[in-house]
């Protein structure tokens, strides 16, 4: 397994790109491509990744890059891979799609490629809303979250549905490899990308990628927030290889979801009732993932840390 020290120096996603400071997507792309290496060709559907990664005549990618539309990542990967195979070229074909492009508009195309078990690597960069268009709700948006289409109104506050269980949908295609990743767990991240690279067939890497303006948070805490997501059970690190599920990182005692929520302006309006509802959802998920077979449900939550409230200044700094 590659360690951080063994990662290559070469930057296949160069500096000078135009992502926001602290961008979780840029961080994940850079490190994924570090592991995948130069014999890689990428497709990026309509997303921030297209805009900050290429603006004619400039580009950050130093591997072949293709883009056409929003909803077709799976299909474009299939087509590209077929051409390479026909020409006898060994290329890792990778798609970097967002949550909107995967959970919603691109689900059909992804499902087609998964069901055909095409030899491609599908990476979903999940920042839990349509960020490129300016923060609108997607199927990946968590319960309670503010977005511009789930505003905090007088009658309805934030998103009323829980995050769609994309993992189970993908795994149901009986593909060789599905894994969830977080940039906050570098070794786990590197290992899973490397593993996905070396497996044949349809592989899916589900990356948790904070968005600074969308989550209304301090750019310095991009990595920290992913760690808190894992410690609280909001994000779970596991992999499913040929149907066998394995937890790759088990946190200690579950941290209160409040610790995670309070780092982000998008949740700051949540009522105790809503926070409680989200905590119950997390507990269910926690049991599903971490509970030993036959043992009783565990839902012991460490008391919330004394968190600093998200201040007015913070809101100003990170915009409306």
């Amino acid at each position: 397994m590659i360690t951080i020290k063994e990662l290559p120096d070469e930057n296949l996603f160069t500096a000078g790109h135009t992502a926001c400071p602290g961008c979780g997507v840029a961080m994940s792309i850079r490190n994924a491509i570090r592991v995948l290496g130069k014999d890689t060709a990428v497709y990026v559907p309509a997303s921030c990744g297209v805009v900050f990664g290429t603006t004619f005549p400039y580009g950050a990618w130093k591997v072949p890059f293709f883009h056409t539309a929003f909803e077709n990542t799976g299909a474009c990967l299939t087509g590209m891979q077929a051409a390479f195979e026909k020409k006898g070229k060994k290329v890792t074909v990778v798609g970097f799609a967002g949550d909107g492009g995967t959970y919603d508009i691109g689900l059909q195309s992804m499902s087609g490629a998964a069901e055909r078990n095409d030899d491609v690597l599908y990476i979903c960069l999940d920042n839990e809303a349509y960020m490129n268009t300016g923060i609108q709700r997607s199927g990946g948006t968590p319960f309670g979250a503010w977005t511009t289409t789930t505003p905090v109104g007088k009658h309805i506050q934030g998103n009323r549905r829980f995050k769609k269980n994309l993992g189970d949908i993908v795994v149901a295609h009986e593909i060789p490899y599905y894994a969830t990743l977080s940039i906050g767990q570098p070794l786990d991240f590197i290992r899973k990308v490397e593993k996905a690279k070396n497996i044949r067939g349809f592989r899916f890497l589900h990356m948790f990628t904070p968005c600074i303006p969308g989550w209304k948070m301090d750019p310095a805490r991009t990595v920290e927030v992913t760690k808190r997501a894992v410690e609280s059970g909001m994000w779970t690190l596991y992999e499913v290889e040929n149907g066998e599920k394995r937890i790759t990182y088990k946190p200690g005692k579950m941290k209160s979801v409040k610790d995670y929520l309070m780092m982000q302006g998008r949740f700051r309006h949540m009522s105790d009732e809503d926070i409680n509802a989200l905590q119950m959802w997390v507990c269910k998920k926690w049991n599903l993932h971490y509970k030993e077979k036959g043992s009783p449900d565990i839902c012991e939550i460490a008391p919330p840390e004394e968190h600093h409230a998200v201040t007015e200044e913070h809101r100003e700094m990170h915009g409306p």
Partner: peptide
């Protein structure tokens, strides 16, 4: 030839575009 059973016409033309961009006669 690589015959690809796609799941929609949108995906047909998407795969066609990608394969063509990768140098294949599509």
């Amino acid at each position: 030839a690589k015959f690809l059973t796609m799941e929609s016409e949108h995906s047909v033309m998407s795969a066609a575009a990608a394969a063509s961009a990768a140098g294949a006669r599509v």
